[in-house]
Simulated assay, not measured.
Amino acid sequence: MYAKPRMPDPVRAAAVRAVIIIALTLTQLVVVLLCTLAGSWLAFPMLLSTIASSIVATWAVLDIWVTRQSWLQRNGVVSVPSSAARSRRRLSGRQ
């Protein structure tokens, strides 16, 4: 069976951060729902907090992508043309 290579440490750290933030945001959302159903005064402040947390969670997910791209630019990209690029170059050279 094919095993995926392990994620680089900075990317893994960003992914773990994002998962924790998303879990906390979903927990806040459940608390908002329960406070609303109970008619508690805490529902509105928790709603504002949940909206702020969802913005932070979106930022955390984007951080995974940015960290992965920067890691690939520094360490992971091997600059070798693909076979498709070579064959396309050969075809254009013959004409």
Rank of each mutant, 00 (worst) to 15 (best):
T27N: 13
V78L: 07
L33F: 13
L48K: 12
L62D: 06
A38T: 04
T58L: 11
L37G: 13
V32M: 07
R89I: 02
L48W: 11
V16E: 13
L72K: 08
R90N: 04
T36C: 10
T27K: 09
L33M: 15
S70V: 05
A60Q: 14
S83V: 15
S40V: 01
L34F: 02
S53T: 11
I55F: 04
V56M: 14
T25S: 02
Q73Y: 03
L24G: 09
S49R: 10
T50M: 03
V16W: 03
A23E: 11
C35M: 15
T50Y: 06
R94E: 12
S54N: 07
T27D: 13
I55V: 12
G39W: 06
R88M: 03
S82T: 15
R74W: 00
A85T: 15
M7R: 08
S92R: 14
T58V: 12
R88E: 10
V80M: 04
M1I: 00
I20C: 04
F44D: 05
A3I: 13
I22P: 01
R6M: 00
Q95G: 13
R74T: 03
G39Y: 01
V66I: 04
T50C: 00
G39N: 08
G39K: 08
F44W: 09
V66M: 02
P45L: 11
Q95Y: 08
V61P: 00
A13E: 03
V78K: 15
V61T: 14
W41I: 11
P8E: 01
T67Y: 01
L33R: 04
A52W: 00
V61Y: 01
V56P: 01
L33Y: 12
T67D: 02
V78C: 03
R6I: 05
M1H: 05
A57H: 04
V11T: 01
A43I: 01
S40I: 05
T67I: 01
L62E: 08
L37D: 10
L47C: 09
M1N: 05
S79E: 14
R17Q: 13
S70F: 05
S54M: 12
G76F: 02
N75G: 05
S53C: 06
L62G: 02
S87M: 10
Q73I: 02
V66R: 11
A84E: 09
G39S: 05
V31W: 15
S40L: 07
S53K: 12
I55T: 02
V61S: 13
N75A: 07
V61D: 05
L29N: 13
Y2Q: 13
S92H: 10
L24T: 09
T50H: 01
V61G: 06
